[in-house]
Write a protein that binds this DNA or RNA. Structure first.
Lengths: 346, 346
DNA sequence: ACGGACCGTGGGAGCGCTCCGACGCAGGCC
DNA sequence: GGCCTGCGTCGGAGCGCTCCCACGGTCCGT
């Protein structure tokens, strides 16, 4: 607040960052006392007048503790590192993410997101390890691997989780088995008498870890059903030309039902099919995934696979449990639920 | 790699985290030498055999430097803190975000996202300051305020930016003036002969910082045009019932053009209007914003306001410049571009 | 043969913080 | 009066790291 007049204009008020020693000096106590007061240490009794003096001095100086120094001394942190996935997250996943973040902060963890930025596996693990996080929740697709997990554990991480469709040896897994989505869709289409199922495979790079297992789920469900069901992979980029091209050769494909990977691709394909004069669901039934609002706004209303992710609260509890007992054998938690929602497109 | 057999199964290999002293001991050199080698210090010459011994020792122990210790010693960090906004970001913004993150990492900054989690203003600033970031790019909506900016600067932050439709005193601003979006939409509708403009105001809480200025932009454009243009605010929640209710009383509103806040609300409203038998664009012209793919898939194809955000590269350069010269007067950079895209709905 | 330049390496301080042990002092007991 | 108890506070070490400075050795020039 007070401008220091004899500094050059170059260097404004922020001159030297106040430390606990500065607070101690101003309050006329020792650094130890400052620490006790500001941390409300219960084991040590400090008189009320002293407490007040310290707090006032801290406020006057605008003192903010130095997290790095604190954790250096403590020998550990409360940082939970969540490397951000490369793929932009949809509303479903980002809500899950926020909830988890909130729940973890209830457990007094500090959630830090950290771009991996092209690093993969051990490289990425090393970069993350520099922060000495107590737990890491990494996207399964980051290719952590047993080596990466080991790097993190050796750097002091008590809990290493993968999150998503893939997992890593030695780490706990919050497995989001995307095959369930495919199975669910396939079962739905089979129940409605469809036998020749098209499966949209997005050509976008980052979606592969999701798209492949969803297709695999379809394949499994069809295999279970018997010989007469077939599956056709339909590569499709998220643009109108690609969709139009696919629609143009649609009738040659002999497909009576299609799973479109998600609702957005469903909308894209539905439009292209309708422009081509192909009736949905009469000629081809269609089911998407994610249960987005836009599906309800399509005509016909889009059938979809609703995906349920676990509550952030539950997961935060799990993370906390593993942090407290790092010796636990790595567990695989299947956290993805899928249910078909029947509307008009199937 | 080597299992330590006489530890209990409770405590796996990760036993004590190796430090540079351990590396030094194993390589038979001093800690200083380890530091020189691993940091490739150019001012000090270390013989090649020594370098090799150090590197091998580091690899064998799985040594990872301790970021906190390093920055404690250095007295500063290369951390750029980007508190995550509460509102889930759309694809436009999250792409911008990723690009910025990438570009900053090119400048050797470490980008850390950090949930604010309900804290606002000074509270939040204090929490952020604990990390001693060299720069902070905060959402304008975080309510930083002059006090918050001061807290950050006093904690050593060289550059404080706000990002979004709002700004904070004392901080640089990457201002995304959402009024432009409204102005652009209004101008487009006026040009097409519309005079009674409805403006959708989403009822969702977090959208207000965007919705209000967009509406304000409409108002300004209409005012500029003259007396005969009117504006009607249309509160709308993002669900079908709300849209149906609005559509039911549509004809009583006397609106010949509508700006729907964004493309998703446009889709919602267009469906509701069409279900009500109201012709778009004949009875009511419609324009959205964000230029999402889904707009192109609607029938009629949706006119929209394309929003352009600046390149992450440019912004990273700006951040870097301010970090190098923290004395700079705070500047306001208008970084939002808006152009109307005419399709069929207007 | 001797002084100085220079090269490779080590010693050690100190960044800001916490926490263990110690220390002084007041009050009560023998 | 001396001793003990306990309360409030302080001194100081050390977390892992970097970097200034010192130091011993080799080699060259005179």
């Amino acid at each position: 607040m007070v401008q220091i007049p004899n500094k050059t204009a170059q260097q404004p008020a922020q001159y030297s960052v106040p430390t606990s020693a500065d607070v101690a000096r101003l309050a006329g106590v020792s650094r130890a006392t400052v620490s006790y007061v500001l941390n409300n240490t219960s084991a040590v009794r400090i008189s009320e007048p002293t407490r007040r003096r310290v707090r006032e001095a801290a406020k006057e100086l605008g003192y903010v503790p130095h997290a790095a120094a604190r954790s250096l001394r403590a020998g550990h942190t409360r940082v939970v590192l969540m490397p951000t996935p490369q793929i932009p997250a949809g509303p479903l996943f980002s809500e899950f993410f926020n909830e988890l973040q909130w729940a973890l902060s209830r457990f007094d963890y500090t959630v830090v997101q950290y771009g991996s930025l092209g690093l993969t596996g051990e490289e990425a693990a090393r970069a993350w390890a520099e922060l000495r996080p107590v737990a890491v929740l990494a996207p399964g697709a980051s290719g952590l691997g047993a080596r990466g997990v080991s790097v993190l554990k050796r750097s002091g991480a008590k809990a290493v989780f993968t999150l998503g469709p893939q997992q890593a040896e030695g780490a706990h897994a919050l497995l989001m088995d995307q095959r369930l989505v495919g199975q669910c869709a396939a079962t739905h289409l089979l129940e409605r008498g469809k036998r020749h199922i098209g499966v949209v495979i997005p050509e976008e790079q980052g979606l592969e870890p999701f798209a492949r297992p969803r297709a695999e789920g379809i394949r499994q469900a069809l295999a279970q059903h018997g010989q007469d069901a077939t599956m056709t992979e339909l590569p499709l980029a998220y643009d109108e030309e690609s969709a139009a091209r696919l629609a143009a050769r649609w009738r040659t494909l002999g497909v009576d039902g299609v799973f479109t990977y998600n609702d957005e691709f469903a909308m894209l394909l539905m439009r292209a099919l309708q422009d081509e004069g192909i009736a949905v669901p009469e000629e081809t039934a269609m089911i998407g995934a994610d249960d987005l609002m836009l599906g309800r706004l399509l005509r016909p209303r889009l059938s979809t696979v609703r995906i349920e992710l676990p509550s952030g609260q539950k997961l935060a509890e799990l993370v906390d449990r593993v942090v407290r007992d790092p010796g636990m054998e790595p567990e695989v938690h299947d956290v993805l639920g899928a249910t078909a929602v029947h509307r008009e497109s199937s």
